[in-house]
């Protein structure tokens, strides 16, 4: 019996340490940690909850199907609306309050079609200063269907 006393003391010490470990662990490990791996599961919801700024072309087409019909027939069919018109989710949420501003075609068109030796050779390119001399592209081309009416295939 006498020998057992220090064993009991030791066991009590270990038990107290174990309880302290569990209490501290409960306090410092965030909820959901380890659910999917070595991370806080709630972080996934945090990231998913961030706001969007590009509505996606599906949202645009829901109202602007007239424009989409023109676009779909031309060379720019695969270009999504917000590639040129910019992020429009706020406009999509409040169509009357937030009005998009039309981009300047002199800048906009050149951002893709300005000639550059590293661009794929088959991509249509011009040197804008030679091609139009500062005239806005939309004086001749309709951006949604940019082929000139005199060109073949119109």
């Amino acid at each position: 019996m006498k020998e057992a006393v220090h064993l009991v003391r030791l066991a009590a010490l270990f038990a107290a340490g174990f309880v302290a470990f569990l209490v501290i662990r409960q306090m410092v490990v965030p909820a959901g940690f380890g659910k999917y791996g070595h991370f806080r599961a709630g972080a996934l919801d945090d990231i998913r909850a961030r706001p969007i700024s590009y509505a996606g072309h599906g949202t645009c087409e829901a109202c602007h199907d007239d424009q989409h019909n023109v676009l779909a027939k031309g060379k720019h069919a695969q270009v999504s609306c917000e590639a040129c018109h910019g992020p429009q989710n706020r406009h999509a949420e409040e169509p009357d309050k937030v009005k998009p501003v039309l981009p300047d075609t002199r800048v906009l068109c050149a951002s893709c079609h300005e000639s550059n030796s590293a661009k794929p050779k088959k991509f249509p390119q011009v040197v804008a200063s030679d091609h139009s001399g500062g005239e806005p592209c939309k004086s001749c081309h309709v951006p949604h269907n940019p082929k000139l009416s005199t060109e073949k295939g119109q």
Partner: peptide
């Protein structure tokens, strides 16, 4: 993040959405 907040809603990433080619 591969625009996780977009793709989890059924949209594509912003870079894919605006890539003209």
């Amino acid at each position: 993040t591969f625009c996780y907040h977009r793709i989890s809603k059924g949209l594509v990433t912003a870079c894919v959405e605006v890539c003209p080619t």
